[in-house]
């Protein structure tokens, strides 16, 4: 396993776009070459070592043998792990917007919080966030018909609005609450929300949404039987009937 540690040199007031922080980009390069990878801060083009310190093993390796540790505050650094196919990134603090977008393999773990658009249009692999995630987790970006298509996202804390919008596959698990409209236009993915949420599954045509806590269900869902999942009772709904949908929505039955 080749380990590389990256730390910010200072606090970024202007956000940084760092899609080059990815096992695939680092793997064939030596440390000196990694330092020269391009990042943008605002409208200024810079190199990685202008903004970050880079330490670790020098000899190139395969992407699957790469472990990148991001030490410090990365909450204003966007697009970490964009399109990664294998290997691991461990963010020890929080990560900025678009972390893990388009990733198709490997593991992205974030010890703090993740900002909006976490793992949007993800294809495969695994993302774990120990804290909270922002809006549009696993969603499709503006105008896109398909969001996440495969892989797994786990958010241990809460997630923002539009969780898994335009989901086409894969699964998202949120331990806490989710914001408004989770699983909007779901076309075949799976969402589990441990806490409460508001109006899940609008315009969904396929897939499954499971809400353990309280929620308001749209009137365009058809009430079905009570189902038992993992020993818990859930009220099952079918919808969204506006889209002639065959999606399944399970809402936890509150124990009096």
């Amino acid at each position: 396993m080749r380990s590389i540690v990256i730390a910010p040199r200072n606090v970024f007031c202007i956000s940084v776009e760092a899609e080059n922080i990815s096992p695939d980009r680092f793997a064939p390069l030596k440390i000196e070459e990694i330092k020269k990878l391009i990042v943008w801060q605002g409208n200024r083009q810079k190199i990685l070592s202008d903004l970050f310190t880079v330490d670790g093993e020098d000899s190139p390796s395969k992407a699957e043998d790469m472990a990148i540790r991001l030490s410090g505050d990365f909450s204003n650094v966007k697009r970490i792990g964009e399109g990664m196919t294998s290997g691991a990134i461990e963010v020890q603090g929080s990560a900025g917007m678009h972390a893990g977008n388009h990733m198709s393999g490997g593991i992205l773990s974030i010890a703090g919080n993740a900002d909006d658009w976490l793992a949007r249009e993800m294809l495969g692999g695994r993302v774990v966030v120990m804290g909270d995630a922002g809006n549009y987790v696993g969603a499709g970006y503006r105008g896109e018909k398909c969001g996440m298509r495969g892989g797994e996202i786990e958010v241990r804390g809460n997630a923002g609005a539009y969780l898994g919008e335009h989901l086409c596959g894969g699964s998202i698990r949120v331990g806490g609450n989710a914001g408004d409209f989770p699983g909007a236009a779901n076309q075949g993915g799976t969402i589990f929300i441990g806490g409460s949420t508001y109006l899940p599954g609008a315009e969904m045509s396929k897939g499954t949404i499971n809400v353990r806590g309280e929620t308001k269900v749209l009137p365009s869902f058809q009430k079905m039987e009570i189902a038992q999942i993992d020993g818990t009772d859930y009220q099952k709904y079918l919808g969204d009937l506006l889209e002639n949908g065959k999606g399944e929505l399970f809402v936890g039955v509150a124990v009096p």
Partner: peptide
């Protein structure tokens, strides 16, 4: 306007 996905 309809296709921000295209402009990317």
């Amino acid at each position: 306007i309809m296709r921000p996905d295209d402009s990317r």
